[in-house]
Structure formats: C-alpha cells, structure tokens
C-alpha cells in the first residue's frame, strides 16, 4: 500500500499558478505502465485519487518555448503536439489552429468577466 510513499523526488510547483505537489517521477515513462509513453518530459505522481496503485497523474512539464515549469491545468498551459504555457500561446496565437485560438480567446473573456 505504501510503496509510493516517501518516494517523492521533489516538489513540483507551477510557475504560473503556484499549484504544487510532490512528484515521484520525471520523464516520458511513468513507472509500471507498460505500453504507455508520454510525448513530453513530465512531472508526475501516483494518481492520489485512484485506489489502484499503478495509476499515474501528470502534474506538468516545461513549456517547449520558454522552458517555464507549468502545470497541465487549462489556465496555465496547453498541449498541441508540444507543451506551451498560455503566455507563449498568446504570443504565437496565430500559429495555432482556429480551435485552439477560439479556446484561448474564450478563456480570456471569461477571465475578464469573472475578475470584473
């Protein structure tokens, strides 16, 4: 039961939203997941919300452009063949397909209305 306990490599902290959590693996291969490979180098841990032992949860990774450590939360980054932090996405918004652009724009407006 406690195999994963105490095996934290360090603490992952998102540079944008400050979400933090201990991580227990870094890389493209979550432990004991057989055929699963990640398409980026990720910080991850055992999925704390799943009773089964071998389930993993990706916390975040580095932005492929600015190298900032960001979480996978939709307010901080998105994945489109590579990881991009949202500031970088905004900087290069035109290079992203329409679906992504709409998504990011929608987010902006939601944030605006909720903050006002």
């Amino acid at each position: 039961m406690d195999l994963s306990e105490g095996s934290a490599l360090g603490v992952f902290t998102c540079e944008l939203c400050e979400l933090s959590s201990p991580y227990s693996f870094y890389g493209q291969k979550p432990p004991n997941t057989r055929a699963i490979v990640l398409l980026e180098e990720c910080y991850g841990m055992r999925d704390p919300f799943c009773p089964e032992r071998e389930k993993f949860l990706v916390l975040g990774s580095k932005c492929s452009l600015c190298c900032k450590t960001v979480c996978v939360g939709t307010d901080c980054s998105l994945f489109y063949t590579k990881r991009f932090c949202l500031p970088c996405v905004r900087d290069h918004l035109h290079q992203f397909p329409e679906q992504v652009q709409n998504e990011v724009q929608r987010k902006k407006s939601v944030q605006k209305t909720s903050s006002s």
């Binding site: 699963i36 990640l38 990720c42 994945f79 290069h92 290079q95 329409e98």
Partner: peptide
C-alpha cells in the same frame, strides 16, 4: 499570418484532437 511571426513552431496545420493528448499507447 504565420509568415509575419518570428518563430516557426512547426505545428500541424490541420487540427486534430489527437494532437492535444500528450499520451501514446505503444503497441
């Protein structure tokens, strides 16, 4: 528009939801 930008991110032109997933299953 991309032409006017500075860096080419080399992103696929056609959107596919598949590109949004950072997991692959190797079989």
């Amino acid at each position: 528009r991309k032409k006017s930008g500075s860096v080419d991110l080399g992103l696929p032109k056609d959107y596919d939801a598949r590109y949004r997933i950072n997991i692959s299953v190797c079989s």
